[in-house]
Design a protein around this nucleic acid. Structure first.
Length: 353
DNA sequence: CCTGCCGGGCC
DNA sequence: GGCCCGGCAGG
């Protein structure tokens, strides 16, 4: 959990660096644990940069004094706003936007890296503050962390298909999703975090709003990305993953058989199928999702995984499946990532046919 | 030849 | 049971 940002080579072997400019957001709106080294960190350069920024932050009280922060140029538009928002959503529960409520009004003593990180991470001290440590890669998406701006306010946008609800609190949007979309009792405290999945944070520039920037309306093409793709019940994603307004869905169909896109979002769906075979492997909490409210093209042949294993009749060899097995997916050099059966030259238990 | 994995052996 | 591997079959 203690990701040493000064040691950016804390890179998972499956991690795919991405050189995408921060304003060109790529769809990696989820963070998925990677085996053994589950720090899906970003590009090393960005990490170094982020570390540098953190270091400077730790010694500079400026950032803690929003009143003294120079006003951002008006050119800062939704693109950048959303970029920041993107980072927050990518991180799961973090946001640069401190709004006005949680900004310390007095300078704090110099912060260590850890403290400064905590400070930043705690900015959005809503009820979605879990799992923050795993999400520290957020800042690597944004090479230059921006000073907080008073005019920025975090909003929460419902990503349910055809629902453009935007609320100011995560609890509110969760309640909305829970009651309106998930059909749960609003009185119930029960929440498996599923609601988290169906909304994303967006940052709202209140200044722009007052200037009549009606483009904030969720239907605005400048703020709204293509409809997010929700996971199907067969496509489990860690529950803290957030679909971002900017996230497109192109990453989803890659699954395992293709090289991961240039994102951190290497889809490790094998967790769900792993079962007790390989207890060493990181196990992602498998959650059952409601039927996807929108189309989901990602689930392809892995559907077969839920079907009963075809028992080969004795004497007849089981027809060779066309699914890529561990050997092909991971290669010989990553044999330790194979499922046990594959390592034993048995029928693959992860990528069954 | 590569790959998946059965069958069987060893511990 | 875990683990390994020869060898076969399919592509």
């Amino acid at each position: 959990m203690d990701l040493d940002i000064r040691n950016p080579r804390n890179q998972p072997e499956l991690g795919q660096g991405h050189d995408t400019p921060p304003t060109e957001r790529q769809p990696h709106s989820c963070h998925i644990p990677v085996p053994r080294n589950r720090k899906p960190s970003g590009h090393a350069d960005k990490e170094v940069m982020a570390a540098t920024v953190l270091t400077s932050l730790s010694t500079s009280p400026m950032v803690l004094q929003p009143s003294s922060a120079p006003t951002e140029p008006a050119a800062r538009g939704w693109k950048e706003v959303l970029s920041a928002s993107y980072s927050s959503s990518t991180s799961g529960n973090w946001s640069w936007d401190n709004s006005d409520q949680s900004v310390p009004s007095t300078p704090s003593p110099p912060l260590s890296n850890e403290n400064s990180k905590n400070f930043l991470l705690s900015s959005n001290s809503d009820d979605i503050s879990e799992d923050i440590h795993e999400s520290t890669h957020f800042m690597f998406d944004d090479p230059i962390p921006r000073k907080r701006k008073n005019s920025m306010k975090v909003m929460f946008k419902c990503l349910w298909k055809n629902c453009e609800k935007v609320l100011s609190t995560s609890s509110g949007i969760q309640r909305h999703i829970r009651t309106v979309h998930l059909g749960r009792n609003s009185d119930s405290d029960y929440s498996d975090g599923e609601e988290d999945f169906y909304y994303s944070e967006i940052e709202v520039n209140m200044d722009s709003l007052t200037e009549g920037l009606s483009s904030l309306t969720p239907t605005s093409p400048t703020t709204v990305a293509p409809p997010p793709v929700f996971p199907s019940p067969l496509f489990d994603v860690p529950h803290s993953a957030h679909i971002n307004v900017n996230g497109s869905q192109s990453h989803a169909p890659t699954l395992l058989s293709q090289s991961a896109p240039s994102t951190l979002c290497h889809i490790r769906t094998d967790h769900a199928y792993q079962g007790p075979v390989n207890p060493v492997r990181t196990v992602t909490t498998v959650e059952r999702r409601l039927p996807a409210p929108s189309t989901h093209a990602a689930v392809t042949k892995t559907h077969a995984l839920v079907t009963p294993a075809t028992k080969a009749t004795p004497g007849t060899r089981k027809p060779r499946g066309d699914a890529k097995k561990c050997r092909k997916v991971y290669g010989m050099e990553k044999k330790d990532m194979w499922c046990t059966a594959c390592r034993w030259k048995k029928a693959c238990q992860r990528f069954t046919d």
